[in-house]
Design a protein around this nucleic acid. Structure first.
Length: 766
RNA sequence: GCGCGAUUAGCUCAGCUGGUAGAGCGCCUGCAUGACAUGCAGUAGGUCACAGGUUCGAGCCCUGUAUUGCGCACCA
C-alpha cells in the first residue's frame, strides 16, 4: 500500500540541491525531497519510545540543564508543580492518565515560554493501602497473619514489594509522555521525606498543635487501626430496629450488643413529655443482665422528633454519645474490644463476637419481656473503611491529634491577609490562604466546598496502628511521653504507631523541594505554581497541604489548584472491576497512541467535570494525529524547493492567513493560561483541522502548482510558518507526533533541535 | 437536614463581561479529486427543564418549582 503512494509522489522532479545538505542526516528522502516516513500514515507505536528517549537524553526535563545549555535564562520566571504521587504499588489508570496529560500540558507550555520549569515526580507509600495489599498476599500464599510474621519481617516484605512495583508505575508514567525531572524523584518514605515528617511533627508538638489524648476514634476491627473521618464510606443497609423497654421509657437501637452498660437516659430539656424528670435524677431499671441504676441527662442532642425522644448512650462506642458524655462528665466504659469481642460487662455473652451475639441477646431480652417491638425494615447508613471495606467501630482510644482550633501567634508569613504576630488557628490559616487569594481554586465553585469542609473540621487523628509508614517520634516509659527523634534511653520504647499517610502527603510540596533544609530548590520553586489533582481529593490532600505549609513555612504550598474530574465510561458510570468497564490507558496507547489518548482526556473535560470516555473518542483523536502528519506531508511536498532566505511579497490573503494564525495562537495561549485546557485543546484542534487543512491548504493548491513564481514563494513561506507554529501550538497536547515531525523538518524551519524546548509562538524567551 | 452542581442537537458536552444557538461523535446524501477514506463536500436535527421577573434585548442576571448528580452531617 505504501509502495503505491511512493510512486505517486514523483510528481515534483525539481529538487533543490541546497535542500539535501540541510536535511537531517538520518532522514531518508525520496526524489520529491520529503522524508520517506511521511509516505505512510503516522505510526505512534514506532516513534513514541524513541522520542521519549530523545527528550530524556537531552536532559531538558531538568531546568538546571536548560539553564546550563542556554535554553532558559537563569532569572526567568519559575513554573513548578509536584506530581500527586501515585501509590507505589499501583498501576496506571485513566485517572492518572488524565492527571498526567493536564500537568504535562501546563509544564510543556511553560517550558516553551522560556520559564524555569520544574515538575517533580514521586511515589507515595500509601501506608494503609500498601500494607493491607502485602498482608493479603502473604496470607493467601503462606496463611500467615501479621502477628506471625512480625514487624521487621513484614516491613522488609513491604519494602521489597514497593521497590519492585515502583518501576511499573514509573515506566507507565513515561509512556504518557510526562516530562518530569526524574533526577529529583522523591518517595514519601525516603530519607529526605522522613526527615521532613519528623521535623514537622516535632515542631507542631512543641507548639502544642499536636497532642495525645483519649478520644472517640474510628476503629477498624478488621485492619486493627484507626481510620480518618474522610476515609470512611457510608453504605446503606437494612437492619432490624429494636424498641426496648428501659424502665418507664422506650428506647431504640440497631445495635443491642452495645447496650449492656447503658446507664444514662438522655432527653431534650424542652421535651414536654418528660418534664416530670429532672436532670441528674436516678432511677432503677431492669436491664439485660439485671437491675441498673440509671441517671437522667437533659441534653439538646436528643431530638424529640426521633423515636420516643429518649435515648440511652454508649459513649465508648459512639462519637455523638462521647460528646454528650464529655459535656456532662459522665462515665464511659468499653463494651466491645478491639477485635469485636464482648467484654465482661456483657455478662454471660462476654467472649462472643458481636456478630454472633446479637441473636442470643435479643432472645434473652425477649424472654425477659424487654422488647416493645421490632421494625424489620429500618434502613440506615453504616460506616465502612474506604480501604478494605471493613465495618468501622467507634472506640475511645489514646491517639495523636492535630488541634485545628488552638490559637497561636503566627510566625513569619507571606500569606496574603495573614501577618506575623496575628492570633490564628490552623483552621483560620486554611481559610485565609484561600479567602486572601493566596490560593485560587479552579473551578472556583470548589472554593465554597472547601470552606464548607473547613467549617465542619474536627481535630485530625494522625496515628495509625499499622507498621508501614512514618514512625511517630515519640517515646514511652511507664506512662511518661517524650517527643524527640532519638531514643531518650534504655527504658524507653518508641510508640509503635505510624502516621496517617496524609500527614506526609501534606508536606509534599515542601519535602520534595528539600524542606526543612533551606535548599536552593525550595527557595526557587516554593510556593509551587499549581497543584493539579482530582476534586475527590480536595479534602484529603489539598487542604492538608495548605495546613502544613502555611503553618510550617508561612507560605501557601501552591498558588493555584486545578481540579480535574473523574474519568468515567461512556455512559457516565464510574469505571470499576466489577462493572468490567475499565478502559486501560496502556491498551489505548497501544491501540491509538499516546497523543490520541491524552487529547481524549483533555478536550471536553472542563475542570471539575467528570469526563465520559469511550474508545471511539480516542480513535477520533488518532485520526487527528494522522491529519497533522498529512498536513506536514503536503506542506513539505510543496515547499522542498523553497528559498528560505529570499524576501517574498505577501498578498492580502497571505497576510490574512498569518493574522488568523496569530489569532489562533493568542486564543490557545490565553486559554492555557486560564487553565481552560479543554478549550485550548479544542481551539488548537479546530484551527489546524478546519482552518489550516480544510481552507488554507485547499485554496493553496492552485497557487502552489501555478505559474506565478512570486505568489508561490510567498505562499510557501506562509504555509511553512503555519506548519511550524501549529506544531508548537499542538506540542503540549500531542508531544509525540509533533516532535516526530519536528525531527524531520528542514533545519531552516526550526529554532531548536528539539521541539520540546522550542520557543512558544509569539513569545520571546524570557 | 445543610451545602455545591447539573438540566442546551440522537449521545457527550461547550457557550468568556447579557446582543441572531456551537463542537465532537452519531445519522443521512454524494464523492476513490495527487496531503490524508484515519479522508472530502454537504444535509437533517434545538420553545436552551418549567413558571415568573429585570432589560430595548435573557441560554446567560434575579425569584420560585421540578428532576437529577455529588459532598457533608444525622443515623437513639
Amino acid at each position: 500500500m505504501s509502495q503505491k503512494r511512493t510512486n505517486s509522489t514523483f510528481i515534483y522532479p525539481i529538487f533543490h540541491a541546497r535542500m539535501a545538505s540541510t536535511m537531517n542526516e538520518h532522514n531518508n528522502q525520496n526524489e520529491a525531497g520529503i522524508p520517506e516516513v511521511f509516505l505512510s500514515p503516522f505510526n505512534a507505536g514506532e516513534n513514541e519510545d524513541r522520542i521519549y528517549a530523545l527528550w530524556e537524553q537531552s536532559g531538558f526535563f531538568n531546568p538546571d540543564v536548560c539553564i546550563e545549555k542556554g535554553i532558559t535564562k537563569p532569572d526567568a520566571l519559575t513554573f513548578s508543580i509536584v506530581l500527586p504521587p501515585p501509590n507505589v504499588t499501583g498501576t496506571l489508570h485513566m485517572g492518572h492518565a488524565a492527571m498526567l496529560a493536564v500537568e504535562d500540558i501546563l509544564v510543556r507550555h511553560a517550558r516553551m515560554q522560556g520559564k524555569r520549569t520544574l515538575w517533580i515526580p514521586g511515589t507515595d507509600s500509601a501506608a494503609l493501602a500498601t500494607q493491607s495489599k502485602v498482608e493479603g498476599i502473604i496470607y493467601k500464599e503462606e496463611k500467615k497473619r501479621r502477628d506471625e510474621i512480625g514487624r521487621e519481617e513484614l516491613l522488609k516484605r513491604i519494602d521489597a514489594f514497593a521497590e519492585e512495583s515502583k518501576d511499573t508505575i514509573i515506566g507507565q508514567t513515561k509512556k504518557m509522555g510526562a516530562s518530569m525531572d526524574w533526577s529529583r524523584y522523591a518517595f514519601t518514605l525516603d530519607e529526605t521525606r522522613y526527615k521532613a515528617v519528623q521535623t514537622a511533627f516535632m515542631r507542631m508538638y512543641e507548639a502544642g498543635l499536636i497532642y495525645r489524648g483519649a478520644r472517640s476514634v474510628n476503629w477498624d476491627p478488621a485492619m486493627q487501626t484507626t481510620v480518618s473521618d474522610d476515609e470512611m464510606v457510608y453504605v446503606e443497609q437494612k437492619d432490624p430496629f429494636y424498641y426496648f423497654k428501659y424502665g418507664p421509657f422506650v428506647i431504640g437501637t440497631v445495635r443491642p450488643e452495645t447496650k449492656f452498660g447503658d446507664k444514662y437516659i438522655v432527653m431534650h430539656p424542652d421535651d414536654a413529655r418528660y418534664a416530670a424528670y429532672t436532670h441528674g435524677q436516678k432511677l432503677e431499671v431492669e436491664w439485660i443482665n439485671g437491675p441498673i441504676t440509671a441517671t437522667i441527662i437533659k441534653d439538646e442532642a436528643a431530638d424529640p422528633e426521633i423515636g420516643t425522644g429518649v435515648m440511652t448512650i454508649t459513649p465508648w462506642h459512639s462519637k455523638v454519645d462521647f460528646e454528650i458524655a464529655e459535656r456532662h462528665g459522665l462515665d464511659r466504659e468499653p463494651v466491645i474490644d478491639e477485635r469485636g469481642i464482648l467484654l465482661p460487662i456483657a455478662g454471660e455473652f462476654a467472649g462472643q463476637h458481636i456478630k454472633k451475639a446479637r441473636a442470643a441477646i435479643i432472645e434473652k431480652m425477649q424472654a425477659k419481656g424487654l422488647i416493645e417491638k421490632i421494625d424489620e425494615n429500618y434502613v440506615h447508613n453504616v460506616s465502612t473503611n474506604e480501604r478494605g471495606g471493613g465495618m468501622i467501630e467507634p472506640q475511645i482510644k489514646e491517639q495523636w491529634f492535630i488541634d485545628v482550633n488552638k490559637e497561636f501567634t503566627m510566625g513569619h508569613s507571606e500569606i496574603p491577609s495573614v501577618a506575623e504576630g496575628d492570633l490564628v488557628t490552623l483552621k483560620v490559616l486554611m481559610q485565609k490562604a484561600v479567602t486572601g487569594k493566596g490560593i485560587s481554586i479552579f473551578p472556583d465553585r470548589f472554593e465554597r466546598v472547601y470552606y464548607n469542609w473547613i467549617n465542619n473540621l474536627h481535630d485530625w487523628c494522625i496515628s495509625r496502628q499499622i507498621w508501614y509508614g512514618h514512625r511517630i517520634p515519640a517515646w514511652f516509659n511507664k506512662g511518661e511521653v517524650k517527643v524527640q527523634i532519638d531514643c531518650p534511653g534504655d527504658d524507653w520504647t518508641q510508640d509503635p504507631d505510624t502516621l496517617d499517610t496524609w500527614f506526609s502527603s501534606g508536606l509534599w510540596t515542601m519535602s520534595t523541594l528539600g524542606w526543612p533544609e533551606k535548599t536552593p530548590d525550595f527557595e526557587t520553586y516554593h510556593p509551587t505554581t499549581v497543584l493539579e489533582t482530582g476534586y475527590d481529593i480536595l479534602f484529603f490532600w489539598v487542604a492538608r497541604m495548605v495546613l502544613m505549609s502555611t503553618y510550617l513555612t508561612g507560605q501557601v504550598p501552591f498558588k493555584n489548584v486545578y481540579l480535574h474530574g473523574l474519568v468515567r465510561d461512556e455512559k457516565g458510570k464510574k469505571m470499576s472491576k466489577s462493572l468490567g468497564n475499565i478502559i486501560n490507558p496502556l491498551d489505548m496507547i497501544e491501540k491509538f497512541g499516546t497523543d490520541a489518548t491524552r487529547l481524549s482526556l483533555i478536550i471536553g473535560a472542563a475542570p471539575g467535570n467528570d469526563v465520559p470516555l469511550s474508545e471511539n473518542r480516542i480513535k477520533g483523536y488518532k485520526n487527528f494525529a494522522n491529519k497533522i502528519w498529512n498536513i506536514t506531508r503536503f506542506i513539505l511536498t510543496h515547499t522542498h524547493d523553497m528559498d528560505y532566505v529570499a524576501t517574498v511579497t505577501y498578498s492580502e490573503r497571505d497576510t490574512e492567513i498569518l493574522a488568523t494564525l496569530k489569532n489562533a495562537v493568542a486564543d490557545v495561549t490565553s486559554e492555557i493560561e486560564k487553565f481552560n485546557l479543554f478549550l485550548a485543546g479544542e481551539k488548537a484542534y479546530h484551527y489546524v483541522w478546519s482552518e489550516l487543512a480544510d481552507i488554507v491548504l485547499e485554496e493553496s493548491k492552485p497557487i502552489l502548482t501555478g505559474t506565478d513564481v512570486n505568489a508561490r514563494a510567498a505562499r510557501q513561506a506562509v504555509l511553512s510558518e503555519c506548519l511550524v507554529t501549529s506544531l508548537k501550538l499542538l506540542h503540549p497536547f500531542m508531544p509525540f507526533v509533533t516532535e516526530t515531525i519536528w525531527q524531520e523538518l528542514p533545519a531552516e524551519l526550526r529554532d531548536s533541535d528539539i521541539l520540546m524546548v522550542a520557543s512558544w509562538p509569539g513569545h520571546d524567551k524570557m
